[in-house]
């Protein structure tokens, strides 16, 4: 590197650049936090949906599945599972979801296994409410198709 570019200049770029972009990031974060309620329909975030999220976490669902593309890639994406399996009908989805959960683990040898979590019907309902709510988040039109 040329002699005219000194260590002091490099240091200033580091501290100045780091600070500037961190502040900009914080500013954009404030704007994002303000925009999120509308994009995620916070008015529809009921206590049941909240309970569903707790169950999602307590059973480490993200350890196999992805949710809005984040998580593990061992099992299907669930951010849009309501669109994929519920066909837009909430009651049909609740029934489907509960039956699916009760049927685990499916006894096909060699197939990837989902454990039996022994949840109650109310818990199944809360979890599926959480997944329905999640499917309505404005994700900039992701995923590309219903298979997730």
């Amino acid at each position: 590197m040329s002699e005219r570019f000194t260590k002091g200049m490099a240091r200033n770029i580091y501290y100045g650049g780091g600070m500037f972009f961190m502040l900009l990031f914080i500013g954009l974060t404030v704007d994002t936090v303000v925009a999120i309620p509308e994009r995620e329909n916070r008015d529809m975030l009921t206590a049941e949906v909240e309970h569903g999220k707790e169950l999602w976490e307590k059973n480490n669902c993200v350890g196999c599945h992805s949710l809005l593309g984040e998580g593990a890639y061992f099992a299907p994406e669930l951010g849009n599972v309501f669109d994929r399996r519920g066909m837009g009908n909430e009651e049909a989805f609740h029934a489907y979801f509960s039956a699916w959960m009760k049927a685990q683990p499916i006894g096909v040898p060699g197939r990837r296994k989902m454990p039996q979590f022994n949840l109650t019907d109310e818990e199944h309902r809360a979890l599926s409410e959480f997944l329905i709510w999640t499917s309505r988040i404005d994700t900039n039109e992701w995923p590309p198709n219903k298979e997730g």
């Binding site: 570019f5 490099a10 580091y14 972009f21 990031f25 925009a35 994009r39 988040i137 992701w142």
Partner: peptide, 28 residues
């Protein structure tokens, strides 16, 4: 001098680069 420049570029690109995770999770 190298170290400062490298980490300067790491922060300048990396902090707002966090945005590549915000594409499809409900952020604007």
């Amino acid at each position: 001098k190298w170290l400062y420049l490298i980490i300067a570029m790491a922060l300048i690109s990396g902090i707002l680069g966090t945005g590549h995770h915000f594409f499809f999770i409900g952020a604007p």
